[in-house]
Design a protein around this nucleic acid. Sequence first.
RNA 1: GCGCCCGUAGCUCAGUUGGAUAGAGCGGGAGACUUCUAAUCUCUAGGUCGGGGGUUCGAAUCCCUCCGGGCGUGCCA
Length: 577
Amino acid sequence: MRETLNAAIAAAVASAIESGKLPLPSVPEVSVERPRDPAHGDWATNIALVSAKAAGMPPRVVAEIVAGELRSALAGVAESVETAGPGFINIRLSRGVVAEVVTRVRAAGASFGAAEPTGRRVQVEFVSANPVGPMHVGHGRWAALGDSIARLLEHAGDEVQREFYINDAGVQMDVFAASVSARYLELCGREAAFPEDGYRGAYIIEIAREIHAEEATCWLDAAPEAREAHFREKAYAQVLEHLKRVLHGMGVDFDVWFSERSLHAAGEGGGPSAIERGIERLRRAGHVFEHEGAVWFRSSGFGDDKDRVLKKADGSYTYFAADVAYHAGKFDRGFDLVIDIWGADHHGYVKRMESAVTALGHPGGLEVVIGQLVNLFRNGEVVRMSKRTGEMVTFEDLLDEVGADAARYFFLRRSTDQPLDFDIGLAKERSSDNPVYYVQYAHARICSILRKAAGADTADESVDIEAVAGGIMVTPEALALLGAEPGTLAGEAELGLLRKIAEFGDVVEVAARQRAPHKLTTYAEDLASAFHQFYTHCQVVVDDPVLRSARLALSDASRIVLATTLGLLGVNAPQRM
RNA sequence: GCGCCCGUAGCUCAGUUGGAUAGAGCGGGAGACUUCUAAUCUCUAGGUCGGGGGUUCGAAUCCCUCCGGGCGUGCCA
């Protein structure tokens, strides 16, 4: 519809110019928008305001001229074309045209609002936690965020791969192993000094206990190096298993789990490692220099504050060097766009990574989304956590308590760059205060209506909703009954719902482009609200078979869009509550 | 000091990249179930969009400046 109107407006302006009514050198950029206020119609254009100056005429006069042309061009499509305010042209579509969206939604089903395949290959990398402990709630937010962005991009036509980068190289793994080792020795009844900077969480004891249960005391007198090397792998495997299980439990499954270690390992036939080859690439491009015994990347040449070390004076590589190699590899794998989702505490890292990707020959190929942190509350009270003592509410605890649907929904409800206050009490509440239930309830209500329409008990779970929905037959003439009584509560409720459904395509497009799933939760709540109003003011299963078919079809279209929206959020759409 | 993010109703936040009278939920006040789920709906109160300049037909939105908060600023990961 947007395209149709754009074209019609451009043509109207062109014809006004041609007939000499409008003194303009050329047709300006046309844009139509949905007015905030429904009293302003379905669509509005500011074309007259934009071009008034060039035409040397007051905006309202320009608007009148264009509106005159538009009226005849849009006969049959628009019910009215009016000028208003400082010079807007408001277009009100005829009811039949507005109601067509019901047919389009029901024909498209879950793919309503989806774009044609773009052929673009996108990788979304997210969570990417150190495998040395349980996920915290921030990881949960990033998991929900990354997965939903991936779903949005898929809906927008991209081919998407989800990847988890496992930081399994580096000193944190040694600290981890030493911590487990100390707990193991304690379990064996031996005094053991706990590492100064060790991980003190109770989960370390759990891991040690499992090893102890399996292998008893056979590592008690082993050389510390051998013991820790063994424990490191055992503990790593356990944590990785935990990560996969928790993520799967919330509906997040990765295509690739990428090990940082593989970047350090020698290449084919003992050749240079991926890290060494990555540095070599930067060197060949002329962006590497040596200084004070270290190897540097000249990131300052790409807008970074300062240059960054790749290889330390002691011969080891920085985390950044591994990341350079890792990102080089992503583009080798053929991705057109690489999206990284990082916690806010890493935002100082963005510039250097972008610099490296540009230096590798992929300017603009990397996009970093920064996810702000999560503050946990319980009924208004802050939940205190201590990193030092390891006391914390893990993400798994949170999932167990509030469930995957509420967790995902709340994580995605705020814009990405906004810190999130997560209230556990509210997320569990089964009331109207809780937006996730509000939205799901609208979906369940629709299913209940469909069951009734099929002549079944409204609570009969064995009813196949899709089959019932597929059996609803409706004619364009019937659909034109929707909103046939504007000004009445029923008529306005029907029109409001139709308009909200018609917005969906725009919402998905913007949410995908801006990597902003929170626009989906806002939309979901608006759509649910529009449906609840419709439900209150309009009896769906009425005696008149024509009106009934129209309202059933509208309910069904609402159901489909509601379910699709929730699907993009990764939240279930229950048929009964 | 420098860099990034944020500041909108009592609270938590939207605001479609410059549009019309700035919105929603919660909280406050008043109402609606013989009806397809009241986990719902209706009405009402509440604002110098942190302050001040600027850009223009038009600014919460763009530019400058100041105030206030968060994070970052390692040859750590």
